[in-house]
Write a protein that binds this DNA or RNA. Sequence first.
DNA 1: CTTGTTTGATATAACGATATACGTTGACCG
DNA 2: CGGTCAACGTATATCGTTATATCAAACAAG
Lengths: 363, 363
Amino acid sequence: MPKRKSITLKEVAAEAGVSLGMASRVLAGYGSFSEKSRVSVLAAADKLSYRANGVARSLRLRRTNTIGVLISQISSYHWTTFVQGVEESAKRAGYGVVLSNTGDDPVREMDYLRDMRERGIDGIIASPLDRNLRAFRQASDSGFPMVTVNVNIGSERAAVVATDEGRAGADAVAHLDALGHRRIGLVAGDMELESGRLRLESYRVGLEEAGLEFDEDLVVHGNYRHDEAYEAALRLILLPQPPTAMLVCNESMTGAVLQCLRDHGVSIPSDMSLVGFDDPDWAKFYAPAITTLREERYYMGKLACDALLAEIEQNGPPQATVLVTLRTRLVVRQSCASPRATKSLSWRLPATTPPEHEVPTFS
Amino acid sequence: MPKRKSITLKEVAAEAGVSLGMASRVLAGYGSFSEKSRVSVLAAADKLSYRANGVARSLRLRRTNTIGVLISQISSYHWTTFVQGVEESAKRAGYGVVLSNTGDDPVREMDYLRDMRERGIDGIIASPLDRNLRAFRQASDSGFPMVTVNVNIGSERAAVVATDEGRAGADAVAHLDALGHRRIGLVAGDMELESGRLRLESYRVGLEEAGLEFDEDLVVHGNYRHDEAYEAALRLILLPQPPTAMLVCNESMTGAVLQCLRDHGVSIPSDMSLVGFDDPDWAKFYAPAITTLREERYYMGKLACDALLAEIEQNGPPQATVLVTLRTRLVVRQSCASPRATKSLSWRLPATTPPEHEVPTFS
DNA sequence: CTTGTTTGATATAACGATATACGTTGACCG
DNA sequence: CGGTCAACGTATATCGTTATATCAAACAAG
């Protein structure tokens, strides 16, 4: 048995002694009907514990009351809080949320876009990868409601919710500069992603504003990945003239950098100051608490969802592009201090404890 | 315009010069058809860039190829990894995943259960709250495919994927006992949740096996909440005779406890040993790295999904209850040491830095 | 040359809800 | 008392697929 048959509106109508259409009217609440039929339909529905078939309704209404969210990794703090915001807004409006992880894989991303359209999803929230910009733009132009996050696909109809990544890194650099740092390292993110490029750019802006020179050696690439960031941080601290402070471009890499510094006996903030992008829960209970660049991800999620629902539910012509920019703010904690006058070289020794590598237990 | 009209199968058939049914056959790949019509249908579909309407298909097939996952909080590491496992398995089988956060609110949980059934979801994975056990059992009995996680609803048809919480805490206690600890505190979870009760119970089992007495004073309740756990930990360290080690029942509370200890100058592991349930990423880069009880959540997610899909796709009579139990394992890191012979009282002073409280910026 | 069998194609009945077009009934007014 | 207009119901088309029953043609066997 593929599926147990469930109660249909027809049966409710029969039980109530009215026509199918009447029952629909009462339950969906449109048109006019007498008190008498209202009562009998409701009673019948209750008695049979009728449950409307959403699929049939969706077919008829050409609307599923569901939105899709395409994110890179559900495991990052960054996105979980975002999704919570989306869900909150969606639920309030009676919409469901379908979630898909792309893992920053362009093929998966396209798969999911197609899949969601076939499923009749009413609209999506996404941060398309460079390679897929055209496809997303095309989908948007063809009338598929869409809101993008920190990516502009250049469509007239797709709203964009963004953070001012152009400033964030600069704020951090200014903070470090004020403390007296002159050599500030950057553990950069993935240059194939818009956010990776913007974060690097904002670091350059910060240096310029502080009158500091951009030194290629102080920029290492972790590609937003934990393992690569560990190696990258190692390269920084082994430089002939290491930086006195570091700016790390996402949460996952910040963890790796902390691990690297701990493994090599570099203490924070006395030997090294550190500022991280994203503000995960652990940043505030870490010892010392980490100074971070906080984005209001939850609020961004709500905004993105609200914009999408507006786009979906508007009946008129497409509204103008909406671009909401949220300010990222620096949360100052205990991971930054003035650089030491006399540079200790004690921590430039090989690691005492090798880094712990995760061994996947299951395929 | 509620929705742009899209290409239907009818139009494809017309373009290809065959009947509607023929086009369906070719594209869905059943029945028999000539090479000629195969080619022309495929060409027409491609030319018009035909996209099947999943809603209509679902209505006809009485199946949406979508499963639902009801979790308490998407923000906990615990669940994000679980969901990743579910998604991996689901995608492989061609199923989509609808996710909903209940926030451990029984009303929301029921709302979502109803909502998902109306949406025609093919089955769900959930950990029903005590209050809703009956309703979930009823849904399962009535033929709604379901897999529960760490909760047994007592239905014949619902598979259960569980961890051996009955042993986990005991392993931790044994580890601490072996190091010489005699007073082991517990920051307990929510007693209204099955997992909360089981974790407390396994702690008792561990004490018993180690020949240690159960001391009510050493058990404080954090209810799985960050803020309550901070206070709870404080009560523990302010005891006339504080414990020399602590076992903390989930990730979020572990963070709070660490914060509390740091704020009050209690150092780990010299003043206090600590073992946490759940093994979030930060546990291994914390300084010192935290010893934890690790559950293979990703793998659990895959198992749960596979069990659910089997239940959904089986055509025969309901199969027997499947109960999969996974072993939790102790990951030993640097947060535990032997208790100090002479107890330092230095850390029994009031906090030097008040705990940082989060100030919500937006409603 | 008839009869049976295979093969390809078509027409059509679901699936379960919504919404419109169209009757019927009754109330109210002239 | 006949006519008009609400108010209320019903019958039915529609949404876009899938799958079955039917049909026609082609072909082989008797």
